[in-house]
Nucleic acid binder design. Structure first.
Lengths: 222, 222
DNA sequence: GATGTTACATACAATCCTGTATGTATGTAA
DNA sequence: TTACATACATACAGGATTGTATGTAACATC
């Protein structure tokens, strides 16, 4: 077509980004040409090169358009965190899981990020953002657990940092695996339960590391 | 060079695979040409096309040459599983983590698989193998937990399937994240402790889902 | 209503990579 | 020692993408 008004141009831009989500998700980032994206968006490569510098710029814009699963987790709930840190942490974790399970755009984009693209220098921007989000989650979880210990919600023996890492890894694993195969388990239905398994488990984790061993083996060294 | 003896040929083949591990890891699979691999291996593309059909065949061979982190987990310890299922499961999980932390080849290849390649149809063979390993781990973990309940090692309220999924996801998350950034945490040193946090936590997880709630909220529905 | 600018479409050249075909020297079997 | 197969190296052709250059029609502004 031809010259559009400013709003229409923005709409084309979004159509391109929508198409990128679909095509990248279907064929992977590196295996799809800008011609593919253009065709899927009903435009030509000219339109793409007008709105974006190149493919990695398009990719970055596509990712930055959405909020990642864990991203909402760190933003909300630092208000009520003080009152009931454990419940607040649980709510945040469940929120991230449920968002993953229910938001199709979030699914598409995060699936591309985790499984359909190669994690290298050219996507440095996206990398930075993601690892910043991850670090935020980790720190928030650690702080919550530390507060929970302080308030007596958790026994004093709990290693807050390590417990936070375990939780963080579990959430990432659940999301990543579910995206790769939604039949992995019923994410939406079981989100609360899995998080509970972990967090409730911490409640009794008094001994530093394995008091309830059968035979007290030598301390793990190496 | 020229015609080599059979052993020398096999050695070139392995040199090519070694080079592939390095170059794929450095630049990602799709961004490296066979010329790059050949140069890194000190041969020409002719040698690669002699030993492998194409790039995806090379990639498959590279992955199939090693045993993945979780792979050793399912193989061993179905013998002593009956005696002490929980300890056996823990040993298997820690084994997988420590192997990841200490085996450089395992690191390189699994890092490529999880972060440096795009998970699509063309690597159907690798995909099948990996998801088969993952399914094996999950089933093994579930069986172990079920047995642990039967033997009184775990309370009867534990949902074995869900607990296994949580553990599986945590292990995957730990490995995946540590590979992406080895500064994430000290994997080798803390492997036993993280697994303990999860498994020991299950010991007290009697209620089906959250008995110890502050206020008994409505059953999560949707 | 002439003009510059925007938002694209189209055309083109250059590059890269792949696959295959061919060359060739060596091992290996007869 | 002839003859064939092996283990590569080299050469070549073709397609696929990329980035840019250029065209162009509508919009905005005066």
């Amino acid at each position: 077509m031809v010259r559009r008004t400013k709003d229409e141009a923005l709409e084309t831009r979004n159509r391109i980004l929508d198409a990128a989500e679909r095509v990248f998700g279907a064929n992977g980032v590196s295996r799809t040409s800008l011609e593919d994206v253009a065709k899927a968006a009903g435009v030509t490569r000219g339109a793409i090169y007008w709105h974006f510098k190149d493919k990695s710029d398009l990719f970055t814009a596509m990712v930055n358009r959405v909020t990642l699963p864990m991203e909402g987790m760190v933003a909300r709930s630092s208000e009520e965190a003080a009152a009931d840190p454990l419940a607040s942490l649980k709510a945040a974790a469940v929120f991230a899981l449920k968002r993953t399970a229910t938001d199709p755009q979030c699914q598409r984009v995060f699936d591309v990020v985790t499984h359909k693209c190669e994690y290298l220098d050219e996507m440095a921007g996206v990398k930075r953002r993601i690892s910043s989000v991850e670090k935020g989650c980790l720190d928030r979880a650690e702080a919550a657990l530390r507060n929970a210990v302080k308030r007596g919600q958790l026994p004093s023996g709990v290693n807050a940092r390590l417990a936070a890492i375990g939780l963080d890894a579990m959430l990432y694993g659940l999301i990543s695996k579910w995206l790769a195969d939604p039949d992995y388990f019923a994410l939406a239905r079981n989100a609360g339960a899995v998080v509970d398994i972990y967090l409730e488990g911490l409640r009794s984790n008094s001994r530093r590391t394995g008091r309830a061993r059968k035979r007290p083996k030598a301390r793990h060294k190496r």
